[in-house]
Simulated assay, not measured.
Amino acid sequence: MQIDIRPVEDSDSDALLHILEVVFAEYPGCVLNIEEVPELLQPAIAFAEMGGCLWVAQQQEQVVGCVGIVPTERAERMELKKLYTLPAVRGQGLGRRLIEQVEAEARRRYAHSLHLWTDTRFTTAHRVYERLGYTRLPETRELCDRSHSVEYHYEKRLC
C-alpha cells in the first residue's frame, strides 16, 4: 500500500500522540507524558514557530509516521526531530524516506550537517541512522523526564 508524506496539520495531533504512545510502549520504562511533548498539541503551529517543519506519513487515511526538522543555534547545522513510525509499516523503507525528507530540507536551507538525539533504548532506530551515514558522537544527555531517558547524540555531514 502506498504511503504519502505531507506537511503536518494541527488536526494530526491525536494521530501523532497515538504513534508516540505505541512506540514508547515497545520499550520498558518509556512513558508518554503530554506535558513533555506540548509541541504535538498543535504541531503545525509549533514547528512553524520554531522555524522548522514536521511531516507525516499517511497510508490511506491513517497517519503512520512522522519526522521533523528545526534550526539550531548554529546556522550551518539543523536538528532532526520526532522520527517515529508505527510497527506495521516498518521494514518498508519508510524511515529512510522520512530521513531523506529531512536531509533534503536541510540542504535546501544550506545546512552542512544534521544532528539528532535518540533514546538509548531505541536500538532499531540507531541501526537505521548508522546505515544512513549518521555517526554516534561520544556525548549523552539525561532528560530528567518521566521515562528517565538518556539519549545518544548522532550527526551526519551533508557536504
Rank of each mutant, 00 (worst) to 15 (best):
R121F: 10
H112N: 14
S13D: 06
C144M: 12
R97N: 09
R127L: 14
E26C: 15
D14I: 10
S11R: 14
A48P: 04
R131I: 01
G68H: 09
G93Q: 04
L32I: 00
C30T: 00
F122T: 02
A111V: 03
L83S: 04
E100N: 05
Y27F: 13
T72P: 12
T124D: 15
E130R: 11
E35C: 07
I69K: 05
Q62K: 11
H112Q: 12
V89M: 08
R131A: 15
V67P: 07
L98F: 04
C144G: 10
R157F: 03
E103T: 03
T72H: 13
W55N: 05
A57F: 01
R157E: 11
V31Y: 07
Y27G: 04
F122N: 03
A15P: 05
E130P: 06
G95I: 00
D4A: 15
P28E: 04
G133P: 10
S149I: 09
C144D: 08
Y154M: 05
T72Q: 15
A25F: 02
E105S: 03
L32D: 02
A44W: 02
C159R: 08
E79N: 12
Y84L: 13
F47R: 06
L94V: 10
L114E: 02
G133R: 00
Y84R: 11
Y154L: 02
G68E: 07
E105I: 04
H112W: 02
Q101Y: 01
P138G: 06
P38Q: 06
R97W: 02
T135V: 14
L32W: 01
H112T: 09
R74T: 14
